[in-house]
Amino acid sequence: MTAMPETTGTIYDIGYRHYDGPRLGRRGAIGAIVGAGLRAVFGFGRSGRSKIIPWGAVILAALPAVVAVAVRVLAGDILDLYDYDGYVWNIGALLPIFIAAQAPELVVNDIRHRVLPLYFSRPIRRIDYVAAKIAALAIGLLAITLAPVLLLFIGRVLSTDDLVAAVGEEIGAMPEIIGNGVIHAVVLSSIGLAICSLAGRRAYAAGAVLAVFLIGGVISDSFSENGQDVAAFVSPLAVLDGTRQWLFGGAVDGAPAATSELPLALYGLAALILVLVSWAVLAVRYRRLTA
């Protein structure tokens, strides 16, 4: 006879269920904000268009390393296209573009659409929110300020016959590679987010970031060529290269610090001031907002 009608698609209202699983508190909350921030920085979970700039920048930043290693493999030691000292300075133009495109994504909408009270009514402090956003952008920036230089390092080591000897030869550059990459990432993400936190819309924020870096760069370049070394201090990238030279040595062709008469420690001091001012701006801005 006929089979029993199959029960399909029945919806049972099981009512409200309480949650008694783990609560990760402040640490979990900060981790969640950093994670979501990283997704935003690289355009994950967003349209293909929002991946173009971050991933384009990451690829362009790695290109010199790839070329240098390829040349080395083919031509041997006769030609060193890129060295560790100048790598970040030479791809420096990518940094303002990356920051201008991705930093506004992290902070502007939360302010503009008043989402912050929802964050601050959760188990974090205001400073945790700001620190998590800086961390997200800084980790993202490492893809440009650290990853390509590491790639160059690995390529140089692997393209030799004697691996052990090559590692011994190159490992001395490791502190500079990591130190310079991290300093760039932390300082630039702090500056970028401080600027963005003051802008009302993402487009304004992006414009402001570009303006600060480009105008600073132009002033620094043109005046430094005329021997006015002080001008370098309006350009964050020039300041950071000076800081690198102060900490790790190695002048870079075309960078203001290379030809400057000023003590290199001043660049380090300037970098420190840039970070502290950025953090102060963020602290004041986020104390004023909400509540």
Binding site: N109, P117, S121, R122, P123
Partner: peptide, 29 residues
Amino acid sequence: GYMPEHDCLPPDISATEFVAHMARVSGLP
């Protein structure tokens, strides 16, 4: 839990994504 009086939602994200994110910021795995 706190529901403010004013508008407080980002427009360019789905409700599912947003609420799940807020759950994690509350400390849920």
